[in-house]
Simulated assay, not measured.
Amino acid sequence: MNNQDLAKNVLDLVGGEQNISGLTHCATRLRFVLKDDNKADLKALDQLEGVLRAQNSGGQVQIVIGAKVDAVYSEVRKLTSDRIGGGEESVDNGPKKRRNPVNVVLETIAGIFTPVLPALVGCGMIKCLSTVMAAMDGLKVQASSRSLT
């Protein structure tokens, strides 16, 4: 199934454009904020070719697509008006949902640390390499016997 067909099917199975109040994506998932979660057919979404998993989590319908999520997201955006999504002109006519305060705090913490993760991973890899080299006597620090006097 090509990306355009997948986008059409996903859009139909989440209840259509009228049911969507927000649309974003991450590295592997399309994330829909729906006005009425009951209109989304998660079982049918799970059965779609190209969809790895569909679930309702954290007030969102999350559709796991994998590496081609960006292309499918672009196709969904082409099929919908510019009023949905995370943009400035986003319109939400549905009732406001109360979010779990614990989830809000965890999402905030994750949002703060996510940009720093590559630097932390790089530092960890350097530390790992230096530890391995030191254990193999690859890093020998020689003390100078000369004094600077």
Rank of each mutant, 00 (worst) to 15 (best):
L23V: 02
V105Y: 08
M125T: 13
K96E: 04
G58Y: 02
A7R: 00
R29E: 06
E75N: 07
I63W: 04
A54T: 00
I126D: 13
G87M: 09
E17Y: 02
Q47C: 05
C123G: 12
K97Y: 13
V102N: 04
V14S: 01
N100E: 11
V61Q: 01
G16P: 05
D41H: 02
G59F: 03
K35N: 07
P101L: 12
P115Y: 10
N93I: 12
D70N: 11
V61K: 03
P118E: 14
L48P: 02
P118L: 08
N100T: 07
K140N: 15
L42P: 00
R77D: 05
D12E: 14
V10A: 01
R83M: 07
A71Q: 11
V61M: 02
Y73M: 06
L13S: 00
L117K: 10
E89Y: 09
M136K: 15
N100G: 12
A135S: 12
D36P: 08
V91S: 04
S144N: 14
N19S: 09
K97W: 12
D70T: 10
I109R: 12
H25M: 04
V105N: 14
S57W: 07
V105C: 11
L30M: 08
E88Y: 03
S57H: 06
Q55G: 02
A27Q: 11
S144A: 14
V141Q: 11
V104M: 13
P95T: 08
L13W: 03
V69A: 06
I84L: 10
L42R: 04
V91W: 10
V141L: 15
A7N: 06
S57D: 06
K39E: 02
G86E: 09
P115R: 12
K8G: 06
T131D: 14
R77V: 07
G87H: 07
K8C: 08
Q18I: 15
L148S: 15
D12F: 09
K35R: 11
G22M: 00
E75C: 10
E88H: 06
